[in-house]
Amino acid sequence: MNVFADALRWIVDPAHWVGSAGIDYRIVEHLAISGLAVGLATVVALPVGVLVGHTRRGRALVVGLTGAARALPTLGLLTLLGLALGIGLRAPVIALVVLAIPSVLAGAYAGVESVSRMAVDAARAVGMTEWQIVRRVEIPLGLPIIVGGVRAAVLQVVATATLAAYIADAGLGRYLFEGLKTRDYAEMLGGSLLVAALALVLEGAFALLQRASSTATPRPGGTLRLLPDPGRQ
């Protein structure tokens, strides 16, 4: 367990908490890149997913896309974009957006589709317009699954943002690659522990958010069905 003690000592060392190489800076950077990517992906994928769920057209496209996304190796996408776009944050952010889209899309589609047809028909019968049905019936009722899609995207993006340090020196992944290069296991392990902790904290936060977004009364013994994400790295 000595290595873990070394890694923890590396994490709490005050020298590692100053400047633009500091742990606090890198955590913010990591979260900012991930947040930007998930935000952009949501802007693109959420309306499309809701539209597919509402009209029930293009279902095959969504299913096919999420399946294909699982098979796509993220490191391949990152390095390919890295070569094409050069050094900088553009390549990793684009790669992360591409990776986040299928999860958000699948969640939005599945969330809207999960809403009972009876509720939708009832809304139509009392005279709601299609737009009102989407906004006031389908989205609120499907929200837990929609949030589940975003949760899956966040997990995947935070993980892949670590990998992105391979092509752009940004985020917590830098410690991993720096440590690998200099054979500094304490730094590598310390960085890994930070990334894992960050991922677990976000997972917990989103689990709570997902639960809070449910308008349904909890069924006895039933837990919320979370959407299986279409793969992550």
Binding site: V3, V158, A159, L176, G191, A199
Partner: peptide, 12 residues
């Protein structure tokens, strides 16, 4: 838990 950190943590 992301994969790369897991690869690094496991040997420990």
């Amino acid at each position: 838990i992301p994969s790369l950190p897991l690869f690094i943590m496991l040997p420990a």
